[in-house]
């Protein structure tokens, strides 16, 4: 589904990703872990097409297409979804209206018919039950005055509505208490099937207790330095990132 080969990218002359290789197949959950500044969020941003980042080498293929050639909205249309670490607020724009616009824009991209108000509300009701979402939240302005937990639940709800093939969760657990993490993780689990895949980016093992990965990769200084199964995450949790540093030997900065 997603193949990243030797991906190099940076921001304003500063090289952050120094050759990432990753292969994600339908039905899989991959976790990317790593200390602060290792390039985790950069990877998420580059995959979603944020313009601040410049790709300097390598390739990303998604369902046979060159992802890097597509605009952010085209990537969304192809089925790439990013759950933001810091979801933005848009005052005055109701969450429902925003999601309806998004759903219909994505449908338009895919050559599907627009959902009218009735079918949209029906779909939304369905997903609200599934995700245990509150109607009140959806009538409020997008993310405005939402608590950290509400923002993240809103992200996952949007994921449910847009039904992406690949969901990238960028530190979805940051700033959440343990109950909120469980709710968010359960939400993602309900959306999983053999045709979609999830890329979880996180500092900590605790999210992975609920959202169990098939593969865990450790990102360090712009490279994936170690890959393994869910046990690797537990090991990291126990030993800290220093054990990785020791294992690979400390590299000097470029």
């Amino acid at each position: 589904m997603l193949r990243i080969e030797n991906l190099q990218a940076g921001i304003e002359e500063k090289q952050i990703l120094k050759g990432i290789n990753l292969d994600i197949k339908p039905g899989e959950v991959h976790a990317i872990m790593g200390p602060n500044g290792s390039g985790k969020s950069t990877l998420a941003s580059v995959l979603a097409g944020r313009q601040d980042y410049e790709v300097t080498g390598g390739s990303v293929t998604f369902e046979g297409k060159d992802l890097l050639e597509l605009s952010p909205e085209e990537r969304a249309g192809e089925g790439v979804f990013l759950s933001f670490q810091y979801p933005v607020e848009i005052p005055g724009l109701s969450t429902t209206n925003f999601i309806k616009t998004a759903v219909n824009e994505v449908r338009k991209y895919r050559g599907q018919e627009q959902l009218d108000a009735v079918s949209f509300l029906k779909l939304m009701k369905e997903k609200m039950v599934l995700m245990e979402m509150d109607q009140a939240m959806l009538s409020r302005s997008l993310n405005e005055g939402f608590s950290g937990g509400e923002k993240k639940r809103n992200e996952i709800f949007q994921m449910a509505m847009l039904q992406p093939k690949l969901a990238i969760l960028d530190e979805t657990d940051s700033g959440l208490d343990i109950d909120a993490i469980r709710i968010v993780a359960n939400g993602v689990n309900k959306l999983r099937n053999e045709n979609n895949a999830v890329l979880v980016i996180t500092h900590y093992q605790r999210l992975l207790d609920y959202l169990v990965p098939d593969f865990v990769h450790v990102l360090y200084k712009g490279r994936i330095v170690k890959s393994g199964t869910k046990e690797l995450a537990l090991e990291l949790e126990k030993k800290g990132y220093d054990f990785i540093k020791n294992e690979i030997g400390v590299e000097e900065d470029v």
Binding site: G49, D52, P72, A76, F84, V88, F98, E105, L162
Partner: peptide, 14 residues
């Protein structure tokens, strides 16, 4: 903000 626009873009909105 560019952040607001990118957020919308990421949801498929031009």
């Amino acid at each position: 903000g560019e952040d607001q626009i990118f957020y919308c873009n990421q949801r498929g909105i031009d």
